[in-house]
């Protein structure tokens, strides 16, 4: 079973700027970073991707909440904190908040695409299991 991965690159700021200049000038033979989700360092990724935000991603993937209100109930967390984390995750490119028609305009959180894992391409690669499917694969391979 092939899992879908949201890849995170770790690139220094100098390398990122060089990449941008190469794209703009057309001075590259192969365009490696057409779609890029990158961080300056692994420390920055871990600062931004808190345990609470990871839980939100897992809950969105597995429980499919129809609103941030429902998501906060699933997580047993206060709505304002979950709302702030969702807005941050949207700005950071992990989720999309979809406006729902209705008497009260609700926001439905959705993953940016249906990724199963987050793969951080650092010198020591790290994998975060997000979907139920990813967990099943992991448990099956571990024979647990």
């Amino acid at each position: 079973m092939k899992l879908k991965s949201l890849d995170i690159e770790i690139i220094s700021t100098d390398d990122y700027r060089t990449n941008v200049k190469n794209i703009i000038s057309g001075n590259i033979k192969s365009f490696q970073h057409q779609n890029l989700n990158a961080y300056q360092s692994i420390e920055l990724f871990k600062k931004i991707m808190t345990p609470n935000k990871l839980q939100i991603l897992m809950a969105i993937s597995r429980l499919k909440p129809v609103s941030i209100n429902q998501l906060s109930k699933f997580l047993v967390r206060e709505y304002p904190h979950v709302f702030n984390d969702c807005k941050s995750l949207e700005a950071e490119g992990f989720i999309h908040l979809e406006e729902q028609d209705g008497l009260r305009k609700q926001l439905k959180p959705k993953l940016i695409f249906d990724f199963d894992i987050i793969r951080v391409k650092a010198p020591i690669e790290e994998i975060y299991s997000i979907s139920e499917r990813a967990n099943k694969v992991l448990l099956s391979e571990a024979r647990l």
Binding site: V20, F31, Q34, N35, A38, Y39, Q40
Partner: peptide, 13 residues
């Protein structure tokens, strides 16, 4: 080789 669109970049620093 030309640049293909779309280009979607997100960089945190």
């Amino acid at each position: 080789m030309g640049i293909k669109l779309p280009i979607i970049h997100s960089y945190k620093r």
